[in-house]
Design a protein around this nucleic acid. Structure first.
Lengths: 327, 327
DNA sequence: GTGAAAGCGCTAACAT
DNA sequence: ATGTTAGCGCTTTCAC
C-alpha cells in the first residue's frame, strides 16, 4: 500500500503538501504537478480509514431498512444512493430484518465507523436512536415516524388509504375489506384510517371490524389474510392492500381461485414493480419511494454540512393509478 | 466519545489491558470485571476506525452488484448478509448499476476502507479486479465468470437453458423463441446455448437465429423483445426468458394482448418472487440466489481467515418448477 | 507556500 | 499478567 510519504518522497515535497494537494488548499502549481505525477505513478489512493480517524468522520452514510427484499425499500435505497454518490458519499445498506436488536447493532457500527449520518426506516417504535444522536450525528427517519425530534420523510398515508378506497367505491364496489400491516406500525394504522373513513362515510352501518385484517408486511401475510376474508360467511367484494407485498399475496390467492380482478376489486397502496397483471385490472396508489430516498439523502447531507434549522418532516404525495377495467 | 484511555483510567488499569479485555487475551478475572464495569458506565464502544487503521483490515466485506432493484440480486445479498453477520462481519452493499466506472469506484473504496474482502457480480467482462487483488484481499466472483484466478459461484446456466426449453418441448410447443441478456455477458450466452441445443435437436432445420433476441436484463428489455417476436411473420408458440426481469416483461406484453400463458408457452430462468400469476401457467427454473450468496460469503470468509488452497468455482444446481397447465 | 511534528484511538511487540 | 510505547496514514496547527 502506497502512502502519502511515498508520494512525498518521489515528488520531493513534504507529506503535508501531498495532503494539501488532495484536499484543495494553497499549493504552487509546480508542486501540484509533481505530486499528481508521483501519485499517478505509484497508484496512490488516500487511505480512508486514516483520514476518517483523523477527521472523526467518514464520507459514508448508513441506510438501515427493515426488508432488503422488498422492492419498495430497494427503490428507496436507489434514490438514496443517487443523491449520496452525487455528493461524493457512499452508502452502506443495512438490513435490520425488522428486528430491533439487529437494527441496534447496525446503529452501533455506524457510530463506531465514524459514519457521517444515518437514514433509517425504523423496524418498530422501539427503535433507539440515542446512541447515534448523542454523538451529534444527524439522522433522517423515513417511511415511518418516531418519537425523536429529527428530520423525517413520510408518505401521505392517510390520503393513500382514502384514495385507494375511494377508487374502489367509484368503481361500484361496496363491501371493501382492508388488509393492513402490523397494528403497531403507524404507517399501517394511518392507511387503515383512510380506508375506515371512506367506508364509514359510504355506509354508516359498515362493520369495519369484520373486514379489517392485520398482517405482516409480506406476501405471506397478504395471502393468509385474503384467505380468511374469502372464508367469511359474507365475504367482501373488494379489498385494499396496505402495502405492495400484501397486495401481491392477496392477488395471488384471488388468481388461484379464479377470482381475477376486477371480478373482485383490488386496490394496492404501493407500486407493484414486477407484476404481470394487466395494468387496467388493479388500482395502484403509487408511493414515490425513490423520491423519498433522494429527499432523505439531501436533507441528511444538509445536516452533515452543518445546517441547524429545527427538524422538518416532509410528507410526499402519491399518485393514483386507477384501474380502468370495472366489473 | 469515550476511548480506551478513559476506561483504563476509571478501571485503574492500562489502556493495553482494556484492549486485551475486548480482544479476549489473558487478563485476570478481577481486572476483566473492573474494565467491563467501567466500559458499561462510560458507554464505551471500541472505535472501529482506529482498530482497522491499526489492523489494516476491518470486519466489513463489500458486495458489489449490478442492479439493486433486481430481486435476484437482493435475494443474493440477503444470503451474503446472513452468512457474514453470523461470522461478525458486516456487509456494505454497492450498486454498480452495470457501469464499469461506478464499479471501479466502489472497488477503490473497498480497499481504501480496508475492507476484508469483496464479493462481486461483475458488470461486464471489463471489470478490473487488480486494484483489490494486488492488496492481497480475497475476491469471490458470483453469478458471472471472469478471467481472474479467483473463487467463484455460478449457476448451472447451460443446464438451466436446457431445462427451460425441454419443459416447453415436453408440453408440446414447437417454435420456441429465446430472449436472452446482452451478448457480452457469459451467463446469457450459456443459457442461450442450452436453448439452442434443445431446439436444434428437436428439429434439425430449426432456424435459431430468427427466434433469438438479445435484450437488456430488465423488464423493458423483455417487453421490447417480446413485441418484436410477436410481430414476426411466423411468430413463436413459446418463449424462454433468459432472466427473471425479461420474463416479467415478456409476460406483461403477452397478458396485455390476451395471450396469457399457457396459450403461449413461457419458461423463465430465474424466480419470479412478486408475480401474481397462477403458478401452474409458467415454467420457472429457480436459481438459488440466496444460496449463492451464503456460499460466496462462506468461501470469502475462509480466504479471509487465511485459506490458501487453489481457486475453486462452485456450480449451483437449479430446480425446475414445470407449468402443469398445458395448452 | 511549505515543512515539522503532534495526535486521532487502537493493538502488539517488548519489558517487567 | 500487566504496563510502556511505537506506529497504522492522515490532517492540521504552528513556525518559517
Amino acid at each position: 500500500m502506497t502512502t502519502i510519504y511515498d508520494v512525498a518522497k518521489h515528488a520531493g515535497v513534504s507529506p503535508a503538501t501531498v495532503s494539501r494537494v488532495f484536499n484543495g488548499t494553497n499549493v504552487s502549481a509546480e508542486k501540484v504537478a509533481a505530486v499528481r505525477e508521483a501519485a499517478e505513478l505509484l497508484k496512490f489512493t488516500p487511505n480512508r480509514t486514516a483520514r476518517s480517524l483523523r477527521l472523526q468522520s467518514s464520507e459514508v452514510i448508513a441506510l438501515v431498512i427493515p426488508d432488503i427484499e422488498n422492492p419498495y425499500f430497494t427503490e428507496m435505497a436507489r434514490g438514496v444512493e443517487d443523491a449520496a454518490s452525487e455528493a461524493g458519499y457512499s452508502v452502506v445498506l443495512c438490513n435490520s430484518d425488522s428486528q430491533t436488536e439487529k437494527e441496534a447493532t447496525y446503529l452501533g457500527i455506524a457510530v463506531a465507523e465514524h459514519m457521517s449520518g444515518v437514514i433509517i426506516a425504523p423496524a418498530s417504535e422501539k427503535t433507539d436512536l440515542t446512541p447515534v444522536l448523542s454523538t451529534g450525528r444527524p439522522v433522517v427517519v423515513v417511511d415511518r415516524g418516531t418519537g425523536y425530534d429529527v428530520d423525517g420523510v413520510v408518505m401521505a398515508n392517510r390520503v393513500a388509504g382514502v384514495a385507494a378506497t375511494q377508487a374502489l367505491i367509484d368503481a361500484g364496489y361496496r363491501r371493501i375489506a382492508y388488509i393492513g400491516g402490523p397494528e403497531q406500525i403507524d404507517t399501517a394504522v394511518e392507511r387503515a384510517e383512510g380506508w375506515r373513513s371512506v367506508v364509514s362515510a359510504s355506509e354508516p352501518a359498515f362493520d369495519t371490524d369484520a373486514l379489517e385484517r392485520f398482517a405482516t408486511f409480506r406476501v405471506e401475510g397478504g395471502r393468509e389474510a385474503m384467505q380468511e376474508l374469502l372464508a367469511l360467511p359474507h365475504p367482501p367484494d373488494a379489498v385494499v392492500a396496505g402495502n405492495n407485498l400484501i397486495g401481491v399475496g392477496a392477488i395471488q390467492v384471488l388468481t388461484e381461485r379464479g377470482l381475477t380482478p376486477p371480478q373482485i376489486g383490488v386496490a394496492v397502496i404501493g407500486s407493484l414493480p414486477f407484476t404481470t397483471l394487466s395494468p387496467t385490472a388493479v388500482t395502484v396508489v403509487r408511493l414515490p419511494a425513490r423520491h423519498m430516498g433522494t429527499t432523505a439523502a439531501k436533507m441528511l447531507l444538509e445536516r452533515i454540512r452543518g445546517d441547524k434549522q429545527p427538524a422538518r418532516t416532509v410528507v410526499l404525495r402519491n399518485e393514483v393509478q386507477v384501474a380502468s377495467a370495472l366489473r
